[in-house]
Amino acid sequence: MSVPSQKGSRSPTRDRQTTLFWLYVAGKTPNSVQAIANLQSICQEYLRDRYKIEVVDMLQEPLRALSEGVLVTPTLVRLSPLPVRKILGDLSDRNAVLHVLGLEESPE
């Protein structure tokens, strides 16, 4: 799974502008592949290089999701900036994603 952005670190970023995402997927199932593509597209359009995505493959790390309360795949969690936001699905409803992430007004 190649993701062009940096692998996220668990330490909180000092850059207030940087948005940190965890994206839970299940291997290469259609929904998961779709979600990664959709997220990258949104990020590139709205956040440029001010984002980090950590992709968590539940097939590889099955027990991690249990402790983090994630059930369905794909699930997107925005850890920062606060508040934490959670979106379920392949992120194909772009407007809903932008709305939740508060990005509607600033397309660049």
Binding site: Y24, V25, A26, G27, T29, P30, N31, S32, Q34, A35, N38, M58, L59, P62, L63, A65, L66, G69, V70, L71, V72, T73, P74, T75, R85, K86, I87, L88, G89, D90, L91, S92, D93, R94, A96, V97, V100
Partner: peptide, 27 residues
């Protein structure tokens, strides 16, 4: 496993239970 699903969770597009079942399988 507290798998309480809230109807308030925001959904965008299709999703499935593959990840959850993988997690449960591991457990």
């Amino acid at each position: 496993l507290d798998a309480h699903l809230s109807a308030d969770d925001i959904k965008s597009g299709m999703f499935d239970l593959v990840g959850m079942l993988a997690s449960i399988k591991a457990k």
